[in-house]
């Protein structure tokens, strides 16, 4: 069963098509990468998938529900099935709230029946799931390193046990070691949590590390959908070959003596 499906989704901005007839399915528990150049429509796709933007045509489904056929309240409730993690870890946490409060916030909105005690337990469990000790709940966001902040963001995204978590450039603001720790965690979560993940990134190696399947977006169109390594090896479509060619490992220094 798919946790997210888009059917012929288009988004216009003025006369420009940000997304054109994009159709895709994400199955339960699956991890999918999404790559594309700047301006290809990656962030629009993320917004549409999260139900933050309504497509001009086509349908979005979360499981069997079409969010835009639901009432506003029902749509809000249905969002509990999705989690999101964004690029800037620090910016996504409220500096005036303890980390535990930030992680537990979705529970207040979507699981109101829980007692304070149960909420604390859920927060502790979410922290454990992302490999952080329970004491982190009582810390302030400014004490976190970039990698830790991104783990906290993941814990918050996971606390409602969503069917799908979308990560938008989760490692691009991190240094290599912190990025590695997040990717290692992603590896564990994709194997063990049963949650489906969509990871959006322009770091092709990071995508390949966690996602067996990869989508390529070019100028608002989905131009490839297939096995990540096979796609990279074939270096088609053109957008992907350009991304591969632009990798800095391929950087050819001008001769030092010119």
């Amino acid at each position: 069963m798919s946790v997210l499906s888009l059917a012929a989704v288009s988004v216009q901005r003025g006369s420009r098509a940000l997304l054109a007839e994009v159709s895709l399915e994400v199955a339960a528990g699956e991890t999918v990468g999404l790559v594309g150049e700047s301006g290809a429509g990656k962030s629009t796709l993320v917004r549409v998938a999260l139900g933050l933007e309504r497509p001009h045509s086509g349908t979005v489904r979360w499981g069997i529900d079409d969010p835009w056929a639901l009432s506003t309240a029902a749509r809000r409730a249905a969002r509990a099935r999705l989690g999101a993690v964004f690029q800037q870890p620090a910016a996504s946490l409220n500096p005036r709230r303890l980390i535990g409060a930030s992680i537990g916030e979705p529970l207040l909105a979507h699981a109101r029946a829980l007692s304070a005690r149960e909420r604390q337990d859920r927060v502790a469990a979410a922290l454990a799931q992302v490999g952080l000790p329970g004491q982190f709940a009582a810390r302030w966001p400014d004490a976190l390193s970039g990698g830790e902040a991104q783990r906290v963001a993941l814990a918050r995204a996971l606390i409602l046990k969503p069917a799908l978590v979308i990560l938008d450039e989760p490692t691009s603001a991190l240094d290599a070691s912190a990025a590695a720790s997040v990717l290692n965690l992603m590896g564990e979560l994709t194997r063990e949590s049963g949650t489906a993940f969509v990871i959006v990134s322009h770091d092709l190696a990071a995508v390949a590390y966690v996602a067996r399947r990869c989508l390529v977006l070019e100028a608002g169109r989905l131009v490839a959908d297939g096995e990540t390594d096979a796609l990279y090896a074939s270096a088609t479509p053109p957008a992907l070959s350009r991304l591969l060619a632009a990798r800095t490992e391929r950087f050819v220094p001008l001769s030092a003596t010119r």
Binding site: A180, G187, Y209
Partner: peptide, 20 residues
């Protein structure tokens, strides 16, 4: 360790990336 922290583009891939 910083170099080993970067995932390789193509297989084989380590089960865990090094954290410096």
């Amino acid at each position: 360790a910083l170099m080993a922290a970067c995932p390789p583009l193509t297989p084989p891939r380590p089960a865990r990336l090094a954290e410096a």
